[in-house]
Structure formats: C-alpha cells, structure tokens
C-alpha cells in the first residue's frame, strides 16, 4: 500500500479487528477508523481555549509589556531572557526551587504512596483517616499559608513552639532563620499536597490484579518484596505520571510561600513561581512593583523548559513503553 500524501498515518489496531480490513479504504475511512476521531474533541477544546493564550504568552515574553502600559508593548526579542540569565538573584532562586522541588516531591511521593498502601488495607475507620488527609489538600493554598503562618509564628501565639515548650525545647525561629525557613516552606507544601499522591495511587492500586499478588504470596514473597517486585513494576507508568504532576505542581507553588515568608528572609525561600508572580504583579497591592508582564512571561517560559526537562526524564525512565511508539 503506497500512499503519497498521508496527512494522517492510517490507524493500525494493536490487535487485528474482527472484520476484514481492505486495502482500498479511502482517506476518510482510514481517518475514521484511526485514533483521531477519539482525540479530536479533546484537541479541539484545547485549541479553542488553551492554544491562543499560551502562544500569546510566548509572544508577550518577547515584549516589554507592563501592566501600566499594557497596550503599548514593543517587541524586544530575547532581551527578557538575557536579563534573567544575567540576574544572579534569579539564578539562586532557580537553585532553591530545585531543592524545594526535589525534596518536596520525594517527601510527597514516599509519604503519599505509603499512606495509599496503608489505607488500602481493610481497617476500622478507614474513611475517617482518608478524609483527614484529604482535607489538608482541599483548603486553598493561600489559606494554608495563613494558617501555618500563625502556627509557625515565633510569637507566643505559635502553636508549634508552644508544643515544643511543653516538651522543654526552646523557641525555634521557624520562619526567620535562613535554614529553618526553607525547611518550613518545604514541610508545609508536603503537608498540603500529600493527599494528591494518596488519592491518585489509591485509584491505581485497585488496578493491580489480586491473583498476581496472591501468586506472589504463595511463592513466599513478603510484604516488602510484593511491593517492590509486583506492585511498583505494575504501577510503573502511573507512578511516573504521578511524579510528573507532583513535580509540576510543586515547581509552580507560590501562594503558600507568599503567605508564609513572602520569599524571605531576604530571598532565601523565593521560588521561581513566586518570582514570576512578583515580577508580573508585584508582591502585594500596596507596593505595586513594576508589573513587568513581559519578563513574568519569560520566567514562565523558563519554568516551562525546566518542567519539560523533568517530564522528559520521567517519560524516558518510567512511562513510555515500546508499545507507545
């Protein structure tokens, strides 16, 4: 079968279909029997609502658009990117964001998957435990920030310090010390986001066929071995996906940090997401900021590139199987 102009490659079923496949199908027939009709509605939806804004964001990143003069943007090429690469503060922000993301993702995944395994077992009051963990994730991140701001407060209103005092440990500077502030913002993010991994993996654990697990049990595998040799390999693509999305979410967090430390002390806990927000919109209404939408968009692109690299790594390592090609 030689077709010169194949805009869409013909869809091949993974398995032969029950009816006969003739070689003389028209383009339309091939198109209809292929995967594209399945994909079309979703792709149309994305084209209508997402493509234009995202492309114009790319364009904005190459202009000097500011909030104050939003209708008078000039095209300035890659000047915004050049500015960012030469900005030492921005580079150190990126570095902290890596630490924040890697520690945060590892923490979320280990705890979240652990909780999913734990709460997948039949036990009394399971719903209550699940609801408890979920509720942390349901509160909006800005309010999580406010809440922990007060719980971690170094004044005598600080709940955590008050508990430590009961145990006999002296006041800890949770938010104003350069090191503990970093630990605090990472910890709060883990606290809030663990439920995502838990729910996601709870859904995934259901797809592990019981007989494989039972077979492993009969073969004498202990719980840890069953986890590492049966469950994890089986869920590999889902775990990879979960990691991708947790990474993106963690990388983009800014509201919590804004409420907790505002990126401080100094800029010790500033992440790239927070930088983008501050550059584009100012750190609060009262201070204004420059409202540099162009540079904010450029930071957005940098974030995109970094998360894209992360995603590609996960895709290679965990998700794409040979069959996907």
């Amino acid at each position: 079968m030689i077709t010169k102009f194949r805009f869409f490659p013909p869809g091949r079923e993974r398995v032969a279909k029950p009816r006969n496949v003739s070689n003389q199908r028209t383009f339309l027939e091939r198109f209809i029997s292929g995967p594209w009709p399945w994909l079309l509605p979703a792709i149309l939806m994305l084209l209508v609502f997402r493509l234009y804004p995202l492309l114009s964001q790319l364009y904005i990143s190459m202009t000097d658009m500011r909030i104050a003069t939003i209708n008078q943007a000039n095209f300035i090429g890659l000047a915004n990117y050049e500015f960012l690469l030469n900005d030492r503060a921005f580079i150190s922000t990126v570095l902290f964001t890596f630490v924040y993301t890697i520690v945060g993702v590892a923490g979320q995944f280990i705890i979240g998957f652990g909780l999913a395994l734990l709460l997948n077992q039949p036990m009394f009051g399971r719903l209550v435990y699940r609801l408890a963990i979920l509720s942390a994730w349901v509160i909006s991140s800005l309010i999580v920030g406010y809440m922990w701001r007060l719980m971690l407060s170094e004044s005598s209103a600080g709940v955590l310090n008050a508990w430590l005092a009961v145990v006999g440990i002296d006041r800890v500077s949770w938010l104003s010390d350069l090191t503990t502030a970093k630990i605090s913002v990472i910890g709060v993010n883990i606290w809030r986001s663990v439920a995502f991994t838990m729910v996601f993996m709870l859904g995934g654990l259901q797809t592990v066929p019981l007989e494989i697990l039972e077979a492993a049990k009969v073969d004498g595998a202990n719980a840890w071995q069953r986890l590492m040799r049966v469950i994890v390999p089986y869920l590999r693509p889902l775990i990879g996906l979960n990691l991708i999305f947790v990474t993106i979410a963690t990388f983009n967090v800014y509201e919590q940090i804004l409420a907790l430390t505002g990126g401080g002390p100094g800029s010790a806990t500033e992440t790239v997401g927070l930088s983008m927000f501050k550059v584009a919109f100012g750190s609060s209404i009262g201070t204004g900021g420059l409202g540099l939408l162009g540079r904010g968009a450029a930071i957005g692109t940098v974030m995109f590139i970094i998360t894209f690299i992360f995603a590609l790594i996960y895709l290679r390592l965990w998700i794409f199987t040979k069959e996907d090609d």
Partner: peptide, 12 residues
C-alpha cells in the same frame, strides 16, 4: 527587634 520582623508585613 524580634528576628521574625525580617519576614513580617503590616498584617503578619
């Protein structure tokens, strides 16, 4: 001045 002042705003 308490060290917390470094990360405080009018409200916090």
């Amino acid at each position: 001045i308490p060290s917390e002042a470094a990360v405080n705003t009018h409200d916090s």
